[in-house]
Amino acid sequence: MNASALKAQFIKIRSNKIFELVVISVIIFSALLVGAKTYEMSATLISVTTFLDWFITFFFLTEITIRFFAEPRKRDFFKNFWNIFDTLIVLVSVIPADDTDMAIIARLVRVFRVLRMVSIIPELRLLLTSLIKAMPQLGYVMLLMFIIFYIYGAIGSTLFEHINPVLWGDITVSMLTLFRVMTFEDWTDVMYETMEVYPFSWIFYLTFIFLSAFAFLNMVIGIVVNVMEQENEKARKEKMAELGEPTLSDLAKQLTDIQTQIQQLDQSKPLGNTTNKISN
Rank of each mutant, 00 (worst) to 15 (best):
M1Y: 14
S4F: 07
K7L: 11
A8F: 03
K12I: 08
V22R: 07
V22Y: 10
I24G: 04
V26C: 05
F29G: 10
A31W: 13
G35C: 11
A36D: 07
Y39W: 01
E40M: 03
L45D: 11
I46C: 09
T57Q: 14
F58E: 03
F60G: 09
L61F: 05
L61Y: 00
L61T: 06
F68W: 01
F69S: 03
A70F: 08
P72S: 06
K74T: 02
D76F: 00
V92Y: 10
V94S: 09
A97C: 04
A103H: 12
A106W: 13
R107L: 12
R107K: 12
L108H: 04
R113I: 14
V114H: 09
L115V: 15
L115Y: 06
V118P: 04
S119T: 15
R125W: 04
S130N: 07
S130Y: 00
P136V: 08
M142Y: 15
L143Y: 15
L144R: 00
L144M: 11
I148Q: 00
I148K: 00
Y150R: 09
I151S: 02
L159N: 02
L167G: 10
G169N: 11
D170G: 02
M175K: 10
E196C: 05
F200L: 14
Y205A: 13
Y205M: 08
F214L: 15
F216H: 06
L217T: 12
I223Q: 13
M228E: 12
E229K: 15
L243P: 02
G244F: 13
E245F: 10
T247L: 04
L251G: 05
L255V: 01
I258E: 13
D266S: 05
K269L: 13
P270Y: 05
K277C: 07
S279D: 11
